[in-house]
Amino acid sequence: MSNNNGNRSYKEALANKTILVTGGTGSFGHNVVEKILQTANPKEIIIFSRDEKKQFDMRNEFQNDKLTFLIGDVRDKDSVSKVMRRDIDYVFHAAALKQVPSCEFFPLEAAKTNIIGSSNVLDAAEEANVEKMVILSTDKAVYPINAMGISKAMMEKLMLAKARSHTSDTIFCGVRYGNVMYSRGSVFPLFLEQMQRGLPITVTEPNMTRFLLPLPVAIDLVLFAMANGENGDIHVRKSPAATVQHMAEAMRDLFKPNAEIKSIGIREGEKMHETLVTREELMKAVEYDDYFRIRSLERIDYDKYFSAGQAVPVPKEDYNSFNTRRLSLDETKELLLSLREIKEALKHPIV
């Protein structure tokens, strides 16, 4: 991260610490564990999730004595509390239901995991007086119109309530980012699978825009927040965006130039454009080269904006995927080619 002289290194923060990753077998958990093991020197990393097969695979892949795998569900308050009593120093809360259609069809399940489950983790972290907890949120939590976004917005509010409570020394903060490229369930693996099966590439609405963020960049943001976030902070990584059409065309050009692209219309609960920071949040955010730091517990100094002379202009719009930097088709392809998963997939051409 730039423009942040004096920031603490995550390597320093995590050295000889015990780290809990909820939902640790997912795309984020798998990759953040890999990076911490390679670059920092933690005492222990605890993977807490309910999928025994993914834990089995991850254990065999890493074969590292610093990893501990525990079966459990964030919905179960007792199991979360039991884990948190293992002298945890830092918590990455990544466990969530993330698919918009799934949450839209089963909104109560989204609430159980993303709201109640998050509350269980927040409560347990507070009771155990862990040093810091970082929640992982999404652009869909901003001006939410679907069940997934609403549940994630409530998770953010729960985190902020904990940050205000001052009933423990735990620091509660978060990160918010847009589409993580090639994460589990994202659109790019779907496009590749469709081409491999000889099916058309399906896009919802060609002019729809989405933020694009490589997973390593998302992980850097979370590690930065873990090392430097203060109570109530939400860190938001600035990201370029692309149209869904360009995303599909970029994958087609890389893998199967004659593949058909078919528009199927906007699905229930989807937006044309996503927002990462609201106008109101921009009024109390600190902007750096690469990200925004929303000081969520600070009051907005309205006098600064509306007094005579107006020292600082009022933001005229939010920060969204329509007004951020838009990638061209070639730039979208270039970004895709930077991904490890794309490089690996290109070794196996589609016949």
Rank of each mutant, 00 (worst) to 15 (best):
V217A: 10
S137D: 08
E156T: 01
Q196Y: 02
E12N: 09
L339W: 02
L282W: 03
V236I: 11
R299T: 11
T202K: 09
I36R: 02
L212I: 13
S239N: 13
A95N: 04
N146Y: 14
K271A: 11
A345T: 04
L215H: 10
E109C: 01
L346K: 10
K284Y: 12
V33T: 14
I294T: 04
A40Q: 10
P189A: 05
P200T: 04
L327V: 03
F255M: 05
F48W: 08
A124D: 07
L215C: 15
G29D: 03
F92K: 06
H30S: 11
R279F: 00
N228L: 06
Q194V: 00
R8D: 13
D220F: 06
E126F: 04
R86P: 00
M181A: 04
A308Y: 13
H348P: 01
M208L: 12
V222P: 06
E298S: 11
P101L: 00
E44T: 14
A248D: 07
L122W: 00
Q245E: 14
P144T: 05
Q99K: 12
Q63E: 14
S186K: 07
I47H: 02
A218N: 14
V277E: 08
D51L: 01
I36T: 07
V74H: 02
Q194D: 06
I88D: 01
E317C: 08
L190S: 14
M133V: 11
I294E: 03
Y288A: 14
A248R: 09
N323I: 08
V134H: 09
F106Q: 06
I350M: 07
K140Y: 07
G265R: 09
P206D: 08
D73A: 03
T167F: 13
S9L: 11
E281S: 12
S49W: 00
E104C: 03
Q194W: 00
Q99W: 09
A225D: 05
M247W: 04
R164Y: 04
V203N: 05
E156S: 00
I342V: 15
I135M: 11
L297V: 03
F292R: 02
A161N: 13
N31T: 05
K304Y: 15
L276T: 03
R210K: 13
R237D: 11
A163I: 06
V80C: 06
K256E: 08
F292C: 03
M155E: 15
N120Q: 09
E260K: 10
L158D: 13
T324W: 07
Y143G: 06
S118L: 11
Y90W: 01
Q194S: 05
H348F: 12
E274Q: 12
L136R: 03
N41S: 11
G309Y: 11
T332Q: 00
L97T: 03
G149R: 07
S49M: 00
S307Q: 14
S137V: 01
S2N: 15
I266M: 15
